[in-house]
Write a protein that binds this DNA or RNA. Structure first.
Lengths: 384, 384
DNA sequence: CTCAATAATTTCCTTCGTCAAGTATTGATT
DNA sequence: AATCAATACTTGACGAAGGAAATTATTGAG
């Protein structure tokens, strides 16, 4: 786990992750939260403080009755260690350096001429060097790199089994990337990485179950149940995009009809908008412009897409009942066009109390994917 | 947990549940399976053997290389303790006595004149007495009773929050039942109980994730993810019946349209079959007879229903990727009419490797619901 | 200035599980 | 038959982890 010690007591890990994700918190509160004695928390916190990962904050103003020794909350020393995160897409590398709390310190990116493995790895090496050799010199305090890749990834081995966009098959990406960068590398599926980031440092903090839905070229979903990421026994999970919501709907590339993605994927929207506007050269951006300008047929395309997404999200809520759901993704640049319809579709199709599940719908800030990748490497620190 | 000891070491519980669910197994195999040293297993097994819960089997024939001391597998002594399980429906109590391995030893049932609480509890008391005073005299070795009720149940407190069929609200069922029967009572939702039974003693054994779908008046689903039952943060989970698969489908009592249940629920099937046959007095059984006799319009109703169920199951597979799915329920008395269409709908809508998820489709044997209730009380023994 | 209340720490102790060595029981080899 | 290798199980010493209870620390209230 940590540089000096190798095997670490369960309580130490628990204390560390709780302080990490649930902010400054006193030892007594930690003990209650974790079901430990306060003595155990004191003991677990000591090595973490000695190693510089935690620090004791000055006593804060009281809340309760007012008497008694004030608590000295434990907090993460976010700049104790830095983490590089890189999202690899077909034509670009997006990289960030994050601190322990997944706060982005610096970002950079690089265009790729082709998804050729050697080219990507060369560029990755250069990108990492650029990030770490920035004026602040993060290199000395950076040991880990997280990579986010779309497709089927085995996190435990760092193997990319299959990535359609990149056209990679059974690529030992961890090994290759470790050789080039000299950092300890973790590889994870991009949606899972993003879900992890939101679960540890975003709106999913503290939630025992949680879902993140990404809207873009495809419609994806990361699922946290019982506090841990759902992986799927056959390597498939979170495929919200291929839930069928209309037996008579448009054909989907998966072979079925009426999948959420066949109605609300970026390609599907463009296709429908072209038909609606009678202009076969329309782009996604054109469609957004038209809809915002009040074009009714094109607006209806977005409405239908939003409704489909809402239905799919309702399926998630009905089945697993997450404590909250975040909807995000590059598709939500056209956020205003979707949101009311996503909510309407969700409310209609959510059953009973499932409709109470809070929905956050918001566009995805730039470099968020890379931040997800960095989060995975923070997790790797804790888990190792 | 066990009669003599109160607090029990984690390893003891682990050994017990593993032997319970994964049959006779040697200490060494247990150690590997649980990630313990064989010494720890030896120590954990001793008190269980002394209390009569486990026994050592005679060495079996060898498998591997052939040399070495043969293993003496540990097995459950199933008749060490008995458990009563009762499923409570609106018009009937179905009761069983099960052994530790959830094997049904005896069964009995009682008609209810009304879902009146006092009446139900009186009948419950008499039913339990009848079951326990049978010739084999289970009473001396029975301490626990499990109750399965449809609706919203808080297992930890034994409170029935709301049961639509029984018209119960906030009923402290555990307390009342304990007073009447003198047994330690566990109350659980019926679908969850059935899922637990299948997970511990049926086709879900050993599966890290698993789903059970019940087909009947409603379409329900129990979900096991990461080894434990999914409960849903807002009290809703497994509502596969209200996933929308056809935006233009028939109206559902939930207020939406095209829910699985609005197409494949028993009521929906009867309604559609009446319309298809042009005979407004048709019953479900009549519809089954007609379909089996080759009536094409009525057959199409079952086909459409099966397909809808298959789509719903595919949504489960796409989202959580269970290791296997069991489809069962009283609706599957007409099993032959559904099965091919369930499979077809599933295959069409399952995405990628999700289609590899094995599906077991079979009718639900009588008293299986009550067995589920008994299973929950077996779990209570282990958890306590 | 004392007391009550709460937070953190210390000391001692129990418990659980590992390690390493030893015992048990078999088939194979000489 | 005697020995050996292989595997299963048991034993006893040990160590790590966490708990209980007493102790110290720090505050506000009377």
């Amino acid at each position: 786990m940590f540089p000096e010690a190798d095997a670490v007591a369960p309580a130490v890990t628990a204390v560390f992750t709780t302080v990490l994700t649930e902010g400054p918190i006193s030892r007594v509160a930690l003990a209650r939260r974790l079901g430990l004695s306060s003595a155990a928390v004191t003991k677990a916190a000591r090595p973490l403080i000695e190693m510089g990962y935690l620090e004791e904050l000055a006593a804060t103003e009281r809340t309760g009755p007012g008497a008694g020794r004030p608590a000295s909350p434990l907090a993460i020393r976010a700049d104790r260690e830095f983490f590089v995160g890189v999202k690899i897409t077909g034509d670009e590398l997006i990289g960030v350096v994050c601190d322990l709390r997944a706060g982005v310190r610096t970002a950079a990116h690089r265009r790729l001429s082709a998804p050729d493995v050697d080219h990507v790895l060369t560029q990755l090496g250069e990108l990492v060097d650029e990030l770490l050799d920035s004026p602040s010199d993060y290199r000395a305090r950076t040991r880990r790199l997280g990579l986010a890749v779309s497709g089927d990834v085995d996190r435990s081995t760092g193997l990319v089994r299959y990535s359609p966009f990149l056209r990679w098959h059974d690529l030992p990406l961890r090994e290759r990337a470790e050789k080039i960068t000299g950092l300890a590398v973790t590889v994870e599926n991009d949606v899972k990485a993003l879900t992890t980031a939101e679960h540890w440092f975003g709106e999913g903090v503290g939630a025992e179950s949680f879902a993140l839905v990404t809207v873009g070229a495809g419609i994806g979903c990361g699922l946290v149940v019982g506090g841990s990421l759902v992986s799927g026994s056959h390597g498939v999970a979170g495929e919200i995009g291929h839930i069928g919501i209309d037996v008579n709907g448009p054909a989907c590339h998966c072979g079925s009809r009426g999948c959420v993605e066949a109605i609300a994927g970026a390609d599907a929207i463009v296709r429908q908008a072209r038909a609606a506007a009678g202009r076969p050269e329309l782009t996604f951006e054109d469609a957004v412009t038209l809809a915002r300008a009040g074009d009714a047929p094109v607006g209806a395309v977005f409405a239908r897409a939003g409704d489909a997404i809402g239905s799919g999200i309702a399926a998630v809520a009905n089945l697993v009942g997450p404590a909250r759901i975040v909807v995000s993704g590059e598709g939500l640049a056209a956020y205003d066009l979707f949101e009311p319809h996503i909510r309407a579709g969700f409310q209609r199709q959510a059953f009973g109390a499932a409709a109470d599940c809070p929905l956050s719908i918001r566009p995805l800030p730039f470099e968020e994917w890379a931040r997800g990748a960095a989060t995975v490497s923070i997790q790797a620190l804790v888990a190792s």
